[in-house]
């Protein structure tokens, strides 16, 4: 009967980011959403819960305005949520996010398994999961595409470059999951309406045991620019040679290819 904690991040929905002629990103109309792989993390937790019983709680660190995210997370099934928030917790460095989560998980929760998404939709630093496991001093398995429980043992499949690796470990443990692990269900109408009635444990900065003043400051965000030369080349030998020369001189392909 595993007690599971699913971590999620409430991020800017890239679909709403506008770009115009200015170099900066226009976030004015940007809505927020649950980070994509964190949906998989919650779904994975719910599927384990449906199969093996136990409990599922959601946890997040964010801005106090991110209450919609809490409802969203709860509509996906968890029975309660830990909402750690402060106006300064908007652009946290992944190491700090992990430290804050570790602080609350240690002080306020009991768990057998923690599930995170492999990386967040905005930064994709893949840091929070492994760092959190390290701080809690529990084993961590990343790139997980399948989970099964056998008593106290957890069997996880990892999708790595050269194939699938099957690992077994004992609980408590932390997993970071890939999107391949499941296809998250779309919350039904009753799930959304029920979410508002589930308990939310709010934790503000003063209640944390460390100093978590953000060490990262975002000054501006610019859009990635792809410069195009607009140079047209034919399939004539001279043009092909020119193309190779140009690519080599820019260091895009290695010398000696000719």
């Amino acid at each position: 009967m595993p007690r599971i904690i699913a971590c999620y991040k409430w991020v800017v929905d890239e679909a709403y980011i506008r770009t115009d002629s200015s170099p900066e990103l226009d976030l004015e109309y940007a809505d927020k959403k649950m980070s994509d792989y964190d949906r998989n993390a919650i779904e994975a937790a719910m599927q384990l819960h449906e199969k093996y019983g136990g409990s599922v709680a959601a946890i997040t660190v964010g801005h106090p305005d991110d209450t919609k995210g809490v409802k969203d997370a709860l509509s996906r099934g968890p029975e309660k949520a830990y909402f750690i928030n402060d106006p300064s917790f908007e652009n946290l460095e992944p190491a700090q996010t992990a430290a804050i989560l570790a602080d609350v998980v240690t002080a306020k929760t009991e768990y057998d398994l923690i599930i995170c998404g492999e990386g967040s939709s905005d930064l994709y630093a893949q840091q929070v999961g492994p760092r959190l496991a390290e701080l809690l001093d529990i084993p961590c398995v990343t790139m997980v595409s399948k989970i099964e429980l056998a008593g106290e043992q957890l069997i996880a499949e990892r999708k790595v470059d050269d194939g699938i690796e099957t690992v077994s470990l004992s609980l408590p443990a932390l997993l970071t999951v890939l999107p391949d692990i499941n296809s998250p269900r779309i919350p039904g109408l009753r799930d959304t309406l029920a979410a508002s009635k589930k308990p939310v444990i709010e934790i503000v900065k003063d209640e944390l045991s460390g100093d978590f003043t953000p060490c990262l400051q975002v000054l501006a965000s610019f859009k990635a620019n792809m410069e195009r030369n607009g140079q047209k080349l034919s399939d004539e030998a001279a043009d092909i040679a020119l193309l190779l020369d140009t690519l080599q001189s820019k260091g895009i392909i290695a010398r000696g290819v000719k």
Binding site: K68, I186, T192, L193, A195
Partner: peptide
């Protein structure tokens, strides 16, 4: 409300998928 926004997002997703 936040609830209404979530409801709208969910029905959009369902409709898009099916």
């Amino acid at each position: 409300s936040e609830e209404q926004e979530l409801i709208r997002e969910n029905i959009r997703e369902l409709v898009k998928k099916y």
